[in-house]
Design a binder for these strands. Structure first.
Lengths: 136, 136
DNA sequence: ACAAGTATGCACCTTTTGGTAAGTGACTGA
DNA sequence: TCAGTCACTTACCAAAAGGTGCATACTTGT
C-alpha cells in the first residue's frame, strides 16, 4: 500500500512535472517576488483601479523607478491592467485582471499565516538582523 | 454600513498595521523567498524527515553551500528542525516543525494557482527571456 | 515667469543573492 | 594506501535586484 492510515498532514500539492518551473509553487513565487509586488497587489485588490500617483503615495517609501518597474512586470505577467486615458496632464490607472484577482485570492492563506505567525517571524527576523550587525 | 452590497472579490486580507512588516503577506514572503526554499519545503512536506544527502540529491542542481544556507535560514525561522544524531560518519536529518507544516498548508493554494495558470506564466516568462536576450 | 504635479525614462551605483571550487576530519571499502 | 562518503565550511566572484537622482513635455495655480 502507498498510504499509511495515520496520513501525514496535507502536504503542498505541487506537481513537479513541468517545463521551466519545478512546480506550480515555483511559478507562482517567481511572479510575485519583487520587493513591492505584494503591496501593489494588496492595494489594487482592496481599492480597485488606482491612479499611479495614488499608488505611489499608498506604497510608502517606494521610488518611481521601482514602482514603475514592478507595475510593468505585473502587467507583462498579465496580473494588472494599465489604462492610459491619454489626457494631457497624464492620467493612468492600474487595476487587477481576472488572473490578478485569482492570484490575490490564492494569496489570502499566506496573508493569514503571516498575520497569525507574525510574532514568531518578527522575533526571528530581529535576531537575524542583530546577528548580521554583529558579523561586520 | 461598511460593506457594499456588490462586494468586490475577496481581496487578500492583509493587516498592514504591524512593526517591520507591512502585512502578513510581506512577512510570509520574506520567510519563503530564496531560490531553493519552496523545493525544500516541498520535499520535506512530502517525505517527512530527510537526510542531508537525500535532500541534496532530491533538489537537483543545488550546491552544498546553497542547500546548507537555505536550511539554516529555514531552521532559524522555525520552519524546519535539524536533528543531529552525533554519529561518527555524520548523520543529520531535517523535518518540518509544526509551524513549517502550517506554512506548507498555506502554500497549497499557491501551488494550485501556479499549476492551473502554468501555461500563462510559462508563456510570459518565455517572452521576458527573449526580450532580455535581445537587450544585450 | 515660476514652482509644482502628472507618469515615466535613464544612467549610475550599492546591496543582496547565488554560484564555483576547494578544504575539513573521521571513517569505510577495495 | 587511496579514493570515496558523510555534512558541512570558507574564500572568492558574478549576476540580479534595488536605490538615487536627474530629465522629459505639458498644465495648472500663484
Amino acid at each position: 500500500m502507498t498510504e499509511d492510515p495515520a496520513a501525514p498532514p496535507p502536504a503542498p500539492s505541487c506537481t513537479p512535472t513541468l517545463p521551466g518551473f519545478t512546480c506550480g509553487l515555483d511559478a507562482t513565487l517567481r511572479v510575485i517576488s519583487g520587493k513591492w509586488k505584494p503591496l501593489i497587489l494588496y492595494f489594487l485588490a482592496q481599492g480597485g483601479p488606482t491612479r499611479y500617483g495614488e499608488l505611489r503615495r499608498a506604497v510608502r517609501d517606494v521610488s518611481d523607478k521601482m514602482l514603475i518597474q514592478q507595475l510593468k512586470e505585473l502587467e507583462a505577467d498579465g496580473l494588472v491592467k494599465r489604462t492610459d486615458y491619454r489626457e494631457i496632464p497624464p492620467r493612468v490607472d492600474y487595476s487587477l485582471t481576472p488572473l490578478g484577482v485569482s492570484l490575490a485570492q490564492a494569496l489570502v492563506p499566506l496573508c493569514t499565516w503571516g498575520t497569525e505567525n507574525m510574532a514568531e517571524v518578527t522575533r526571528v527576523f530581529a535576531m537575524r538582523a542583530r546577528w548580521a550587525a554583529g558579523k561586520e
